[in-house]
Simulated assay, not measured.
Amino acid sequence: MNFHTRKWVKPEDLNPNGTLFGGSLLRWIDEEAAIYAIVQLGNPRVVTKYISEINFVSSAKQGDIIEMGITATDFGHTSLTMRCEVRNKITRKSILTIDKMVFVNVDEDGNPAPHGKTHIKYIEEQFEKEDL
């Protein structure tokens, strides 16, 4: 799993216990997963269909730097399935895991649309295509 996006836990991200508010973290994950799906499917119109059990393993506190890792695990006809892990950048301690997140590729009318993708597209492949 590649960890690309990092967030700095700030005072406005905290819950009353002084740790990272789960809702803030889930918002960041949903946004990161949507961006990942858009890049993989080559379509700016994707929607969150399903998120499996969310396992909060440990907490983060103010000043921590966290990193989000997302990777594709399956390409359906109109969907992309991913898994996610969030960890502390410094200690590498896991903060959260999600085994399954499904995003659906949609057309201009919001209907599921085939995407024609079958494997993960890595950044190197994108640059090679642009260089042609």
Results as ranks from 00 to 15, higher is better:
V9H: 12
S59D: 10
D64H: 11
D109N: 15
T97Y: 03
N111W: 05
M82G: 07
F56E: 03
Y122I: 13
I29A: 07
T5H: 12
E12I: 02
S52N: 13
R45M: 14
V57W: 02
H115L: 05
T5E: 13
L132W: 01
I120S: 10
K49G: 08
K49M: 11
W28L: 07
I70H: 08
M101N: 04
L41K: 06
G76N: 07
A34F: 02
L41R: 05
I29D: 06
E12L: 05
D13F: 15
I35Y: 07
E85V: 14
A33Y: 00
E130R: 14
T91W: 06
N105C: 10
K49W: 01
E128H: 15
E53W: 00
W28M: 10
I120E: 13
Y122S: 05
G42W: 04
F127W: 09
D99I: 01
H77Y: 14
I29K: 04
G110K: 09
L20S: 08
E12N: 12
E125N: 14
T19A: 03
L20R: 06
H4E: 13
G18E: 05
I35G: 05
R27A: 15
I38V: 15
N2L: 13
H119I: 02
L26G: 02
I120G: 00
F56G: 06
G110D: 07
G18K: 09
W8F: 14
R83M: 12
I38S: 01
K89Q: 11
E31R: 13
Q62V: 12
A72N: 06
K61F: 11
K93V: 11
F103M: 12
V46F: 05
E108S: 12
L25P: 01
E108M: 09
N111H: 14
D107V: 03
K129W: 03
L96N: 00
V57Q: 10
R87I: 04
E130M: 14
A33T: 09
H4R: 12
Y122T: 13
K129Y: 08
A34E: 07
T73P: 00
R6Y: 04
F21L: 09
L80F: 01
R92F: 11
A113H: 09
F127N: 00
P112C: 05
R92I: 02
C84P: 01
Y50Q: 10
T71G: 05
W8Y: 15
F21T: 10
T71D: 12
S59Y: 10
K129M: 10
